[in-house]
Design a binder for these strands. Sequence first.
DNA 1: CTGAAAGCGCTAACAC
DNA 2: GTGTTAGCGCTTTCAG
Lengths: 341, 341
Amino acid sequence: MHKKTDPTIHDIARELNISASTVSRALQNNPRISLKTREKIITLANSVGYRPNTLASNLRNKRSNTIGIVVPLINRYFFSAVISGVEDVAFKAGYTVVISQSNDLANKEISIVHSMLANRVDGLIISIAMQPTNYEHLKTFRKKNIPLLFFDRTVAEIDANKIVVDDFMGGFRVTRHLIEQGYKRIGHMAGPQNLQTYLDRKNGYIEALAKNDIICDESLVVTNSLTSEDGINAVQYLINLPNPPDAIFCGNDTTALSSMIYLRDKGIRIPEDFGIVGFSNEPFSKVVSPSISTIAQPGFLMGQKAAELILNQIEHKEKSFKTLVLPTELIVRESSSRKMG
Amino acid sequence: MHKKTDPTIHDIARELNISASTVSRALQNNPRISLKTREKIITLANSVGYRPNTLASNLRNKRSNTIGIVVPLINRYFFSAVISGVEDVAFKAGYTVVISQSNDLANKEISIVHSMLANRVDGLIISIAMQPTNYEHLKTFRKKNIPLLFFDRTVAEIDANKIVVDDFMGGFRVTRHLIEQGYKRIGHMAGPQNLQTYLDRKNGYIEALAKNDIICDESLVVTNSLTSEDGINAVQYLINLPNPPDAIFCGNDTTALSSMIYLRDKGIRIPEDFGIVGFSNEPFSKVVSPSISTIAQPGFLMGQKAAELILNQIEHKEKSFKTLVLPTELIVRESSSRKMG
DNA sequence: CTGAAAGCGCTAACAC
DNA sequence: GTGTTAGCGCTTTCAG
């Protein structure tokens, strides 16, 4: 009635009184096989519901046709956009994508990476966890010469392809925009300074001030982890300063939103009395009221580029590493639009 | 200096003058191996950076330790939450998760499913594409007895484990809530009625009206694809009716939001003049102003349950199928809170 | 407690 | 054009 086990090329070969290699070749459209036998083989394969066993083929070929991706959290807009982009390109190229999330925990990241190694992924795309570690687990990729690509959160000490967004210009544009809107004392809520990303945003901020002959007042710069609560605490601190800011460049949209709500509850009008700009263009930033000006990061594109780069490394053994800096875009919305058009 | 190729159990065996089987056993903590040799083996394995080749092991064991998940679109809050939940449970159980997105295209879905089959996934978790097809590709899973689990969007004609949320009760609770808030004419914006999900929501709505002795006025029910634009068109149509509604139960949060903005621009006050409730608890629903009442769907939990169920099927060969209906929760926010406390 | 041997399903020299 | 053969790296009887 029904077979216990999947049909293999040997089953097909036996049925047709030919050898397994011929079947294998035919199934790969190897031109050395005559059209006639090839057709016979393909017909039978279809009729018995033959599915190649990728496992066996991969073992033999010493490659898995798989690329791994690890992110801090799958369920975050930016990261899921990147994953979506990677999947898009990888699938078209015949690759499978395996994903894992580190939950920003160094130990889970290490464990994941080892598991990816054991699964012989052909390449790994990673945005590292916030929790710092020594990155030994990633260095083995370099040692073993397995393609490795960092995106968003990178590791400076490891030589590899990297894709980041232009955080510096992002910070710069935000700040310049606030200045143009007539805000006079612009504060900054910065993220963890061990992450390049946040450092760059802050440097862009400082540069924009300098270009406009404004000396950066260090007391207006607060550093925290950019959670919703951090935002409230920071803005509360800032507006109670003897000489408080009249605008703030928040390190992400989450803090921009919580700050905005806090200020609104205090009767401070946005953007008339106080300007706010966030970072990342989270979906909510567009629909809250007032809508939040922010910096768009091209997540899907980043994923596509990441996949393209790593596939290039895998298939063409591309040896040189580059760092791709994707442009960021300032999206001006209500929270910082004091002047009309 | 450095080996071209990864060390295998044979390399370790040779080095230690023992057999590969002993190494294999030791690495699996087989108690039949003496502590002494086991320690020697493990020490050497670590020092040479041995990583088991999962491919080989999987081929031998005829299982991939992998579960596949396919969703319409990775980059959507609900789906990425489910994926996150699946990954959470699967990883802890030692499984790898491979993901793919159908983009709601039947052809891509078929192609993905074949690829998962070729990769010998131990089980498949799927939310089917909107574009209809004959589901032959999924029936092969049943034929080959490979665990298959549907979530959210299911296929009635295929016998399998299924996880859905209680859309009926969701629709019911929303409608009852609006009635309790004193709204008198409650409309409904429904999604594609070929999907069970949207049908159930509508039926819950009808039932709640009936329970409160309100006859459902069919003219207040609009069916569309629940895009942002659909929402605007539908609400525009509804409020221009000779006898317009004073509240609307929208099939998702997207239409709830676009409706709300449209009404606000028309000078209609929410919730005083008009009540709105959405569905899904998208992140933005909480932060827009007024915040949108909605139904929470436990995406992460759904993913965890899905993984648990399918692992159970994989590992314990559980034969009976069940349909898990996860509870939905009404989240009352500003957009429908006409009465205090 | 350890070893020998066979084989998972596929591919690719190398033959003819 | 097609067949033979060996082997990818691991697990697992079976034997001792």
